[in-house]
Design a protein around this nucleic acid. Structure first.
Length: 293
DNA sequence: CACCAGGCAGTGC
DNA sequence: GCACTGCATGGT
């Protein structure tokens, strides 16, 4: 062990707030013009700035909730070294935004967030989650924001009420998830002890939870780092860089690999040579002869 | 006005 | 098993 992780601070390449909080794994952090981020974690409001992380007394290190949430005690340098050895494109993704971490979000919030995410865009996912919290969440004292609603609170909502907040066809999915959790038929914390395949199958008993949403709940909510959620962006990554479609190559940290690859694919245009070439090909295809296909 | 967005359920074969 | 379609809504 090279560091004492109980006292060491994290540099920006070990924890970048901007990359971690805006890479599509969480939806409740809001950037301010002064560069700080405001978010609600387990019922408390936090405002954090990158500069403060160089101080060992920063709450990220001293507050047990934040220390756990940001997974401070995991060494991402080791993980990136392991992933970077797998192939060149993954190494580039690790280099592109090394400060990304997989947060330890609340399982119920992660499950709901990714139910809402289906056939949706990240901006609108944020809006819907904020409206849900505003309507059904407990207010955070002294602030203008609310905690994410409990399953009990959501279970009491009606289909029409949820649709009025813009959830659309996902309203019955949220209700089925809320009923399963509120009734205790599914206990998310217990899924953490199951083999990943069994945990995944339990999650998929919920209406509106398929393989992708289940994997996101497992990765972001239950911190199962071996799962590899595949969405439309990752399908592009796979077809372009891993045409054999074999995800077992990514190993025990596949979920972290996925997050680096996802972020590079979504935001790396113009920086990554591969991505910009592929982007140009996409544009040519669309504007040229893509209308009929 | 089409098309897309961190998919899924239903249907048909 | 795989291919195809409808789905609510808001942004380009």
């Amino acid at each position: 062990m090279l560091h004492d992780y109980r006292t060491a601070t994290l540099s920006e390449t070990q924890l970048s707030l901007a990359h971690t909080l805006d890479c599509g794994q969480c939806f409740r952090w809001i950037p301010s013009p002064d560069g700080t981020w405001e978010g609600v974690v387990r019922g408390s409001l936090y405002r954090l700035g990158q500069n403060a992380l160089s101080d060992p007394s920063c709450r990220i290190y001293t507050d047990p909730v934040l220390r756990d949430y940001f997974d401070v005690d995991t060494d991402y340098l080791d993980i990136r070294n392991e992933l970077s050895g797998l192939d060149g494109h993954l190494a580039e993704a690790c280099r592109f935004a090394p400060g990304i971490r997989i947060l330890r979000q609340e399982p119920w919030e992660a499950l709901c967030s990714f139910i809402i995410s289906q056939n949706n865009n990240i901006k609108r996912i944020r809006q819907i989650i904020e409206r849900l919290s505003g309507r059904y969440g407990v207010p955070v004292a002294g602030t203008s924001r609310n905690a994410f609603p409990t399953a009990d609170a959501l279970a009491k909502a009606s289909d029409d009420e949820l649709r009025a907040l813009g959830t659309g066809f996902r309203a019955p999915y949220l209700l089925d998830a809320a009923n399963n959790i509120a009734s205790g038929r599914i206990v998310l914390d217990e899924l953490a002890a199951l083999p990943v395949g069994q945990a995944r199958a339990r999650l998929m008993e919920i209406r509106g939870v398929g393989p992708k949403v289940a994997d996101c709940a497992l990765l972001y909510g239950l911190h199962r780092l071996e799962v590899f959620p595949i969405d439309v962006w990752m399908k592009r990554v796979m077809s372009r860089h891993y045409p054999d479609d074999d995800v077992s190559r990514f190993g025990r940290f596949a979920g972290i690999a996925q997050q680096y690859l996802f972020h590079l694919e979504r935001t790396g245009v113009g920086i990554s040579h591969d991505a910009s070439v592929a982007r140009a090909e996409d544009l040519e295809e669309r504007h040229g002869h893509g209308r009929t296909s």
